[in-house]
Design a binder for these strands. Structure first.
Lengths: 130, 130
DNA sequence: CTGAATCCTAAAGGATACTG
DNA sequence: CAGTATCCTTTAGGATTCAG
């Protein structure tokens, strides 16, 4: 517990992975954020700032607590998200982006912008296919 | 066969998905390209232009033919990649980005740039933790 | 060359219930 | 509020083989 209290995230090296021999920044970046919920979680933390667990769960519509918990743990290991206990009684926790996490802003916003430009929001009126 | 010859990809709507009620461009974008190999494949097609199957397989270091084949099929269904038979004898195929696929350039390059800036290429010399 | 078929394992994700 | 634990299903991914 209290695994986050001592880190200086800005200076830490991130874990990297790459298939094969060639080092590839695209591959490694996508190995960090290429999970189903990671981009959304980061996006919500970018938009709403530090959030509690259920607050985040509410923002990330559709995620289960188990998956959110695992995702946050993974993002924590990758040093993109920090967990802080802000109050013991009542027990309150805050998730926020590390410096590395914040630096993903251009990536996340590029995804958002692309989505806004190229994807059409499905509407109830046009889901009938005729 | 020749399933690609009639499409006008620029005008087509892309399939979208979003968990829960809220429409979210980040979620849907990541549902399109948030597979392990999709960003790399798109990146290679951006960099090298139209490529044959094995050419691409060679560029995407570490991928198996099965996974590459499935990824390309998926990217094709999502209308990001186009498949063209350029020669019947000898049999030659070319994969290239559709207009939608090309439009992902900012996203892919954002990922690449982030990787270049924030990830350190692992070297054989420094893997000892001293 | 292009890629489909098969088999297999590991990982991701979801529903639900329960705990401090 | 903030999660864990359990169970289960689906999917992704990898190795290998085979075929047009």
């Amino acid at each position: 517990m209290a695994e986050s209290t001592g880190e200086s995230d800005a200076a830490m090296e991130l874990e990297v992975w790459c298939a094969g021999e060639d080092w590839c920044p695209v591959t490694t970046t996508s190995s960090l954020i290429g999970k189903k919920w990671h981009p959304v979680i980061i996006h919500r933390l970018l938009e709403h700032g530090p959030s509690g667990f259920n607050e985040l769960k509410d923002d990330v519509d559709g995620i289960s607590s188990k998956v959110l918990s695992e995702s946050l743990e993974d993002l924590g290991e990758k040093q993109l998200v920090r967990r802080t206990v802000v109050s013991e009684k009542p027990y309150r926790v805050e998730y926020s982006l590390t410096t590395h996490g914040e630096s993903l802003e251009p990536v996340i916003y590029a995804m958002r912008d692309w989505g806004l430009e190229h994807l059409t929001e499905p509407t109830d009126e046009n889901d009938a296919n005729g």
